[in-house]
């Protein structure tokens, strides 16, 4: 049997991805024409313009001012225009990204702190584990986001507005995965390893720093990635109910009120890029942290 010629790795990995992306792009462009054309034909007929070529229709569909589905190049143009503005002006999306991002980051920080403390308590105090853990798990089944508007109102009543309510929402959303991941991770050393530490007569603190904490790292990073994207969702949704003036969520809401489709899509694209960037950042920190640590990479598993 002749040996198969193996294509280079970059081709086998990149080609399928490129293919899928190309299909998506074609579907998007086609969808834009399909969705926007009826409106344009309607308008043209009212204006008495009856003969037009397909090319004309397609160009018009891709450059409509308030399209049902804007073409990618329109979003790109809108983004480019927005980024060229002054950094502190509300016309610049980077300004809104900063507003949402700072709320997300402070909420994430608080969430890591709270999640870590809870996890330490659950791992070390048996009563706390038995009483608290079922609630932590049950809370995962609750649509916590529904609480967001109320937190904003409640904190607004005590005079706290702006960044803090959003950070609290982000924190509230993201500390559960951290708690669960960290509890799982701190529990992951098997009895053999624990026994070994005992034969070394390691103190509880040594046991923690030399065995439990390193063992928890892969689990921690897996849950940090989940947590940071949830924190972003929390910060965005936290801007919805209050009529906030700045932030990606506020842009979404304003765009939906005034029918500015392109504005909605630009805000969506930016938040998507922000989310992917943040998860990528955590992945980078993970790789640097775990470089010298010979632990299996795969973590998580059944929730």
């Amino acid at each position: 049997m002749a040996r198969m010629i193996r294509p280079p790795a970059i081709l086998t990995r990149a080609l399928p991805l490129l293919f899928v992306l190309a299909v998506l792009a074609v579907a998007w462009l086609g969808g834009a024409v399909w969705l926007n054309a009826p409106q344009i034909i309607d308008r043209w007929q009212r204006d008495g313009k009856t003969d037009y070529s397909t090319g004309e229709l397609v160009t018009a569909a891709w450059s409509q001012e308030r399209p049902l589905l804007p073409a990618p190049q329109q979003i790109y143009a809108d983004l480019a225009k927005s980024f060229s503005g002054r950094l502190d002006s509300p016309r610049n999306l980077l300004f809104h990204t900063w507003v949402t991002g700072s709320a997300m980051a402070s909420g994430f920080g608080l969430g890591v702190l709270l999640g870590g403390i809870l996890a330490l308590g659950i791992v070390h105090v048996r009563t706390l584990e038995k009483s608290l853990m079922p609630w932590v798990i049950a809370s995962q089944t609750v649509p916590i986001l529904a609480i967001a508007p109320m937190i904003v109102v409640v904190l607004g009543n005590i005079g706290l507005t702006g960044l803090l309510p959003k950070a609290v929402i982000a924190m509230y959303l993201c500390f559960f995965p951290i708690t669960i991941g960290l509890v799982k991770g701190l529990r992951s050393p098997d009895p053999l390893q624990l026994d070994l530490m005992r034969t070394y007569s390691a103190s509880p603190i040594q046991l923690f720093w030399k065995l439990r904490w390193p063992a928890a790292m892969p689990f921690l990073f897996t849950s940090l990635k989940v947590a940071i994207s949830i924190a972003l969702v929390g910060a965005i949704v936290g801007e919805l109910p209050t009529g906030a003036q700045a932030g990606l969520g506020a842009r979404l809401l304003a765009g939906s009120y005034y029918g500015q489709t392109i504005q909605i899509w630009s805000a969506l694209v930016v938040s998507a890029v922000l989310g992917m960037g943040l998860v990528g950042l955590i992945g980078l920190v993970e790789r640097i942290t775990l470089r010298y640590q010979a632990v299996p990479k795969a973590a998580g598993g059944r929730g």
């Binding site: 990635k225 979404l252 909605i264």
Partner: peptide
């Protein structure tokens, strides 16, 4: 990693 809930206004429009 994307906050998908953001598509809500678009879906309401469609």
């Amino acid at each position: 990693a994307i906050p998908i809930v953001g598509i809500a206004p678009i879906m309401v429009m469609w």
